[in-house]
């Protein structure tokens, strides 16, 4: 099975879980939703290093737009995912080990180890969530709430991502 088909199937499964399960989770308290779970950035975090940058940008926009259709917020997820996958190019360069990445390595726990993966996922998810909540409120007036949302969301998402990675431990 080609690794691309594997990536596509995995992407669809993650999206399905996102829009059927995590979308419906909420813990409302005084009109403030403390539980926003967004794990679909994982699809783009797990794509191989060698992927064409232009395709990465286009795909992330389209997938983000697809998520937006289910969240009924045209452009918000698309913008966040687009920014995340663009900065992924820079983060991959920033986290590059001294010897460089070998050809068969992928940004997974299996190949890169816990510390690298933690830094990688944390930076990607932080960028995504920060941008997502900024676009959602669309004003820096509530910056404290944006920050609170981001941190609360990261506290749930990062462990969730690592549980999934430990469970399935994908090589690709």
């Amino acid at each position: 099975m080609s690794i691309y088909i594997q990536h596509i199937i995995r992407g669809f499964i993650i999206l399905l879980i996102q829009i059927s399960v995590f979308k419906n989770l909420s813990w409302d308290f005084h009109g403030f939703n403390y539980l926003v779970v967004l794990i679909y950035p994982l699809i783009f975090a797990l794509l191989p290093f060698q992927i064409n940058k232009v395709w990465l940008v286009i795909l992330s926009f389209l997938v983000g737009l697809g998520v937006d259709f289910f969240y009924d917020s045209p452009g918000v997820h698309a913008s966040a995912l687009l920014l995340m996958s663009y900065t992924r190019i820079l983060i991959v360069k920033w986290l590059e080990p001294r010897g460089g990445y070998t050809v068969h390595q992928n940004p997974t726990l299996y190949h890169q180890g816990f510390q690298w993966t933690m830094r990688y996922m944390l930076s990607l998810f932080t960028i995504h969530h920060l941008w997502y909540f900024s676009m959602l409120s669309f004003t820096l007036f509530y910056f404290d709430q944006i920050l609170l949302h981001t941190i609360l969301s990261l506290l749930v998402d990062i462990p969730l991502v690592f549980i999934l990675l430990f469970l399935f431990n994908p090589k690709y």
Binding site: L65, S73, G75, V76, A78, S79, M135, F138
Partner: peptide, 8 residues
């Protein structure tokens, strides 16, 4: 990104 801003 501009296009998503437009949509938003």
């Amino acid at each position: 990104q501009f296009f998503s801003f437009y949509l938003i």
